[in-house]
Computed example of a mutant assay.
Amino acid sequence: MEIIKIHHPIDNNFKNNNKCVLAMGYFDGIHLGHQKVIEKAKEIAIKKNLDLAILTYDHKPSIVYKQISSHERRSITLNDYKMKLFKNLGVKKVFLVNYSFDFQNQSPIEFVNNYLIRFNVDTVVAGVDHTYGSKDADMKNMIGYSDGRFDVCAVDLSSFNDKKISSTAVRHNLDQGDIKTVNNLLGRPFKTLGLVVHGLARGRELGYPTANIEHSEFQWLPSIGIYVVNITIGDKTYNGMASIGRNVTFGDKNPITVEINILDFDHNIYGENVSIDWLYRIRGEVKFDGVDTLINQLSMDEKFTRDFFNKKRG
């Protein structure tokens, strides 16, 4: 898959030689609705024997329109993983545009002429509510802007699978810790990528050693709580239970950390880049009266986690 990074204004010498079917969107999360848009574009591309391409952005468009909090700047799917998902969906080319004020300030016809025509599009595909700049820049008006130069396909996602599927819904359920719903909306386990770093080693002292995972500040994480997870190190995947929280039993002012106790595992993995599949939320974080009570709860969490995987295998 080819990734072409573009800064507005697009270079005068830019030219895409092969005609393509283009799916447009930020695609945060690449949830089932996004997948429906991309699959529709893929269906057309196969039928016409053309390349499947994506137009997407290097960060959230909302950054250009308003002040947003550091929490809101986070993404469900960071770009590296998003590109991997695109490739798995059969995408041949990604036009990765820096979404700036100047880019969004184009008139709809300027956007069409500057980008879609130069991308050599045969068909443009997006959700019916997709916009690309000004008030009149929507899929309904795209047909007029195309002036017969390419086809337009707007995919209606309003009643997809009889439920509202959106990036907003995914983020809301992540904030609620409802991983089951998140995974249903995504059509796959919610995944994060991180680096194993040193922590305070409290888990080892309790008999539950943990891998401390450092995430990008732009990664949206589930809410504070205890979770069943899979963690992949290299090409091997292990079962584990994860904690997102402040370790409140040991103080009220601790920073939020992500720690994973990997079941039946004893190996030094500091410095490893890992991926985590979040599978189920066991409970919220609790401040215990003492270490013994905490250890007892961890034992119950471990039993729940083992039972979860045993049922899954069964």
Rank of each mutant, 00 (worst) to 15 (best):
S75D: 06
F86H: 08
V37G: 10
E72P: 03
I76K: 00
F14W: 06
L50K: 02
N16K: 07
S70T: 10
N88Q: 15
L32H: 04
C20G: 02
K15E: 12
H34K: 03
K60E: 05
Y65V: 04
I30L: 13
S75L: 13
N79H: 07
P9K: 00
D28G: 08
N12M: 08
L50I: 03
F86G: 12
R73T: 05
L85R: 07
H7F: 12
H7P: 04
L78T: 06
I68Q: 03
Y65Q: 11
Y26W: 09
K87T: 14
K42R: 11
Y65P: 00
N12V: 10
D51H: 06
N12C: 03
S69W: 03
I63M: 11
L52C: 03
M83N: 11
I46Q: 09
A23G: 09
V37Y: 06
K42A: 10
E43C: 09
N12G: 04
K42N: 10
K82A: 10
L89M: 11
K92E: 15
V91L: 06
A23M: 01
P61Y: 09
I46M: 03
H7I: 15
A41R: 01
V64C: 07
K36A: 14
H71E: 11
I54V: 10
Y26K: 02
M83T: 13
P61D: 06
R74W: 06
K47G: 05
V37N: 03
I54C: 05
K92M: 07
S70K: 12
K82Y: 05
D11K: 06
H8K: 09
Y65K: 11
Y81V: 11
L22N: 01
L85W: 12
K66V: 08
H7K: 15
N17W: 02
K36H: 12
V91I: 06
S62D: 13
N17G: 15
K47R: 10
K82S: 10
K60W: 06
N17A: 14
H71R: 13
N18W: 03
N13Y: 08
S70F: 09
H59G: 08
D80S: 12
Q35C: 09
D11W: 00
R74H: 03
L50Y: 02
G29R: 00
N13Q: 10
Y57C: 14
V21M: 02
G33Y: 07
I63F: 10
F14A: 12
I44T: 02
E72N: 08
